[in-house]
């Protein structure tokens, strides 16, 4: 039986390099999902607070569906559904083709969609916290609708939405663990491989759990820095 430190060392004997690669995948998946989710979430929030009822309805259907489905099921629906859908399109041109959908992209889309439906609620409540007068002031000095949004509303919106979004980021970081189920080599999958090979399941899954905890703590520190930075900007005004 090898010692714990050998198993957790870097190199052919230990598993630290494999797990480090898993950390890289997890973090890059979360970072890649974030802008996608924020963008869709923002658009959904804009649609939800619009006066046009059809737009609101469409946005409400979106959030009802993706907040109601389990994240894992959304992931499978995207992964297998996209595979079957694309395959059928490709088969029209080439009957023998078989399509393999990239699990990273599937994970990104599924997690982004889930993230966006929660983010839209955060943005929506931030929108409601911004007084009407801010828009009217923007229009009064001759800014267009888009300019008002970008120059007047958005800077305030970000500040109000930041705590909620920070919370969603921590949830996203945890949800990335689900992609191990569709074969992406994230932290949990690498730990699982190591556990199977070495028969030291508690050690490796415990280690993986601690890495997630470390990522959460690091994120909290980073979020704290961003919040302080934004708070300083607030004071300068």
């Amino acid at each position: 039986m090898q010692s714990v430190w050998t198993l957790l060392s870097w190199g052919p004997e230990g598993w630290l390099d494999e797990i480090a690669y898993g950390v890289f995948i997890t973090v890059s998946l979360a970072l890649a999902t974030l802008p996608l989710g924020l963008l869709i979430g923002f658009l959904i929030a804009v649609a939800k607070q619009s006066q046009e009822r059809s737009l609101k309805l469409a946005a409400d259907i979106y959030t009802t569906i993706f907040r109601g489905l389990p994240e894992l099921l959304t992931l499978f629906l995207v992964f297998y559904g996209a595979q079957i859908g694309i395959q059928q399109v490709v088969r029209v041109f080439n009957p023998t083709a078989s399509v393999e959908v990239n699990s990273f992209v599937s994970g990104m889309i599924a997690l982004g969609v889930v993230f966006s439906s929660y983010a839209s609620e955060v943005f929506l409540s931030a929108f409601r916290a911004i007084p009407r007068g801010q828009y009217e002031g923007g229009y009064a000095i001759g800014l267009s609708k888009f300019q008002t949004m970008r120059l007047v509303v958005l800077p305030q919106l970000v500040r109000i939405a930041l705590p909620g979004l920070a919370n969603l980021w921590l949830i996203l970081l945890k949800d990335t663990s689900l992609v191990s189920a569709i074969g992406l080599t994230d932290i949990l999958r690498q730990a699982g491989v190591a556990a199977r090979v070495t028969k030291q399941a508690f050690l490796f899954f415990g280690f993986a759990t601690l890495i997630y905890l470390a990522l959460a703590i690091l994120s909290s520190i980073g979020i704290g820095l961003i919040e302080r930075h934004v708070g300083k900007q607030e004071l300068q005004r």
Binding site: S177, L188, F202, G206, A216, I217
Partner: peptide, 18 residues
């Protein structure tokens, strides 16, 4: 702070070590 999936793995596979 940790994923539920990791916790479930820790219990299901990890406790087998003990």
């Amino acid at each position: 702070g940790t994923p539920l999936l990791a916790q479930a793995f820790l219990v299901y596979y990890g406790f087998g070590s003990f």
